[in-house]
Design a protein around this nucleic acid. Structure first.
Length: 478
RNA sequence: UCCUGAGUAGCUCAGCCGGUUAGAGCAUCUGACUGUUAAUCAGAGGGUCGCUGGUUCGAGCCCAGCCUCAGGAGCCA
């Protein structure tokens, strides 16, 4: 018995009439003789032809949807239509049975909601096979992009003590017996007896630590899990998600934007090249889904066209102030179609405003910059006008904010002043402020939400479908 | 957390104005057929109508509370 060959290689094989061994999971078994077999190497199945008249009936009965089998046979040019090659089986071995009365996946369309409930099995569907192969490629491409440019991959801590970053609600980390935690004399929980001798939580961002490393290594990036305990119930938020956070010394905001745009284009192009078939499958899947919708709600471009369009056009770069002017003069604002009307300068943009700018006005990715200081984080570099900061948000159609970043405030006095104003405890972040005391330099960085990127490239509608086992309020199954 | 909608067979869904034994397609099982493409044909089995309580002679249907899911909003990546 020879080595097993993956189905992707078999389907691409130039040679036929050779003996092969294939292993995989049965998708369908038609007519008591045709097995559609898949091993995840490609979305396409290989057809196994069983000589049912000379095969034990008890064995045939065990070839059911979901069963794991090993097939030895001859790879031949297919005698039927619909596929180029097929495997004429000489031996079929059942590696793992799959009780058809209990196996939940059927050879038919299932709703994404149902598949979410059986996330441990949804890998076995065409859609999720494609999604996770694309996710893999995007992940690899991100490393390749940064490695080609001399960035250092930095592992920032998952457990942090500072709760001062203001990036959101945190999950606490402790080894206390929660039913009976040590108390101080005044009746409060005594964290001095906890594992780290202080309150700790899961990271909400590796940025502050990333900045420390950039102040020596020049260009670094992180790519790791991030945790937010916000009670967010949307199609674009998770409690546990993966984030890419590059941080570059001697970069200003323009350099930052250039890098962000280059990164996104690089990884999208990479996935289009490596996962053409998967993305084509997802594109077709979307088109069929769209046929259910009324004409007016269908998108103008299919998924492939959207991705190509994104590659071939410069992202629009607009300041917050310019964006407000555009929105003020926009038809939906004048006709009072917006739920939140745009009247003055200074408030944050609502989802509907971002969507109007990206999907209706510019019709391409938009980078908004120079937001009002009041609505942005303390570490963003202040502009000379005294009211805006060098922030940037990269907005994508259908997704909203894909990237959030800024040039960082490197001037100690400005930074401390802002921390005081916003009530950020300077003592806790002494180590962060030290970088401004010793060899401070202009620098910038951003955070890219990995699942939002996967969402865009796969064309999926819910972020819970582009991560293997999503964590969100009231859900940590699997 | 807020707004809207939904929860009926393994899956997708229908179920009239509150009225007899709750239906269909697919899946499953049995049989037939055997170059099929989510095979086809015939037959069969399969239900705590999300949960709890209430109204009523009678509730899948009406009311209240709760749970879960979806979409939108907020928080953000």
């Amino acid at each position: 018995m020879g080595q097993r060959t993956k189905i992707k290689a078999l389907l691409e094989s130039e040679q036929t009439d050779i003996e092969v061994v294939v292993k995989g999971w049965v998708r369908t078994f038609r007519n008591n003789q045709f097995i559609a077999l898949n091993d995840g190497s490609t979305n396409n199945n290989i057809q196994i032809v069983v000589d049912f008249e000379n095969t034990d009936a008890a064995l045939l009965k065990r070839i059911t949807t979901g069963a794991a089998i090993s097939v030895t046979g001859i790879l031949i040019a297919s005698l039927g239509k619909g596929q180029k090659v097929e495997v004429k089986a000489t031996e079929v071995e059942i590696l793992g049975d799959s009780d058809p009365e209990k196996y939940p996946l059927q050879p038919k369309k299932h709703s994404l909601e149902f598949l979410r409930e059986i996330a441990h099995l949804r890998f076995r569907t065409n859609t999720f096979g494609a999604i996770f192969r694309v996710r893999n490629s995007l992940s690899f491409a991100i490393h390749q992009f940064f490695q080609e440019r001399g960035f250092v991959y930095l592992h920032t801590p998952i457990i942090t003590a500072s709760d001062a970053e203001g990036a959101g609600e945190t999950f606490h980390v402790t080894n206390f017996d929660l039913a009976n935690p040590p108390k101080t004399e005044t009746g409060e929980i005594d964290f001095s007896q906890d594992f780290f001798a202080r309150p700790t939580n899961l990271t909400v961002s590796g940025q502050l630590e990333g900045e420390l490393a950039a102040m020596a290594l020049s260009d670094i990036y992180t790519f790791g899990p991030t945790f937010r305990a916000e009670n967010s119930n949307t199609t674009r938020h998770l409690a546990e998600f993966w984030m890419i956070e590059p941080e570059m010394a001697f970069y200003d905001l323009n350099d930052n934007m250039d890098l962000a745009e280059a990164l996104l284009k690089y990884v999208i192009a990479y996935a289009l090249d490596k996962n053409k078939e998967d993305i084509e499958f997802l594109s077709q899947r979307l088109e069929e889904e769209e046929k259910q919708k009324p004409q007016a709600e269908r998108s103008e471009m299919n998924l492939l066209q959207k991705l190509e369009f994104c590659l071939n056009n410069d992202f629009e770069r607009v300041t917050y102030t310019e964006a407000i002017d555009i929105l003020k003069e926009s038809t939906p604002n004048k006709k009072k179609k917006f739920q939140y009307l745009v009247e003055g300068w200074g408030t944050d943009l609502q989802s509907e405003h971002e969507r109007y700018l990206v999907e209706k006005h510019f019709k391409k990715p938009v980078i908004l910059t120079d937001y009002p200081m009041e609505i942005k984080a303390f570490y963003m570099r202040q502009n000379d006008d005294g009211k805006t900061v060098r922030a940037m948000d990269v907005l994508f159609p259908g997704i909203g904010e894909m990237i959030g970043g800024s040039q960082r405030e490197e001037r100690l006095d400005k930074l401390e002043q802002r921390m005081d104003e916003m009530g950020i405890p300077k003592e806790e972040l002494w180590w962060y402020l030290d970088t401004r005391r010793f060899g401070a330099c202009p620098h910038a960085g951003f955070g890219l939400g990995f699942e939002r990127l996967v969402l865009f490239v796969t064309g999926m509608g819910n972020i819970r479908d582009v991560i293997p086992f999503p964590r969100y309020p009231k859900n940590a199954e699997f």
